[in-house]
Simulated scan of single mutants.
Amino acid sequence: MTLPYRAGIAAAVSVMALAMAMPTASAASLQDVNGHTDNWLNEGSATVTFDNGTTLTRQSDVLEALQQCGALSVSCASTTTQDAGQVTKWYDAENTDLGTGPIQNCSPNGNDITQTITAGHTFSWGWNIGASVDVTLVKDRLGIGASAGFSQSSTEASTGAVGITVKPGQKGMLKMGYDMDRKVTNVSIQGGRFGGAQITGLRTETPLPGGKRVGQDIVPCDQQLMNGR
């Protein structure tokens, strides 16, 4: 089976090449998280226990066990053990037209700085097993993330213009977000190595349909933006 390329901990699923018309804000029920520092995916470790009693905790071993589900001779089923909720994952986006970094208006007696920005960010769907996972295997064979309506081959691109206004004493950047669905899943494997296995604690984070967001990350000059600048 050919795996998609490894991009951090996830296979890229969604690309924003922005600046675009300002959409509505994230739904009130979704929690905002800082994508630069958030580590929910890797805060829990998946394990695999084979039918012969062997338990492995290395993420490469868990991935290898999961990949068996791609074989016709192996039967696999997934069960959600925890619905960890939906979040909007935000990132500061680099300004590709005017140079990288924040717009700084740190003179208290200056004027507002208003700029139209073009920027981009690549969003990912992820797993806590340290490597990319085949989308067809995960969605079609296991049904994990099947309701999210995403695929590895599709991209979502938007174009247009986004204005950002930074007042005196502030600095800011355009920020981009995506609504993500988080779940913890167990996978039962029948057949394959040692006759079968159980994967527990598999964390997934998949993008929700229509979940693209854009906003402004603006703070006083003596504070830090989401990316730590």
Rank of each mutant, 00 (worst) to 15 (best):
Q190L: 09
C76D: 01
D222E: 08
Y5W: 05
W127S: 13
T57D: 08
D32G: 02
G215D: 06
I164R: 02
A10D: 11
L30T: 14
G196Y: 07
L174M: 08
L3A: 11
T2S: 06
R6N: 15
T136G: 15
D134P: 06
P4C: 02
N39R: 14
V187N: 03
D112V: 10
S147I: 10
M176L: 14
V214I: 07
K167C: 00
Q67I: 00
R58F: 09
G201I: 13
T54P: 05
S151D: 15
G99P: 01
N105I: 01
Q86W: 01
G160T: 14
V214Q: 04
Q170M: 12
D51V: 00
K175V: 02
P108S: 05
D83R: 06
A7I: 13
G35E: 09
A28W: 01
G126A: 11
V187R: 08
M16W: 05
C69I: 00
A93R: 00
R141C: 05
L98W: 08
T80H: 00
M176C: 06
D32C: 04
G196I: 10
G99W: 05
D179Q: 12
K89D: 09
E156G: 11
T81P: 05
T155H: 11
D112N: 15
S14E: 12
Y91N: 00
L30G: 10
R182Q: 10
L66T: 01
L98V: 00
K167M: 02
L41M: 15
K139W: 09
A17S: 13
G211F: 04
G160Q: 07
L225Q: 04
S107A: 13
N39L: 12
N39A: 13
R58D: 15
N128Q: 08
G215M: 02
N128R: 09
G196E: 09
S154F: 11
S26P: 13
G163S: 15
I129A: 05
G130E: 08
S73F: 08
T55H: 02
H36C: 07
R203W: 10
P23H: 02
N128V: 09
L225D: 05
D222C: 01
A93T: 04
V162I: 06
S188T: 14
I189S: 00
Q198M: 14
T54V: 15
G228T: 09
S78L: 01
L208T: 06
L174Y: 03
S26A: 15
L63S: 03
R58M: 08
H121N: 12
A21E: 09
A7N: 14
T118G: 14
D217G: 02
I144R: 01
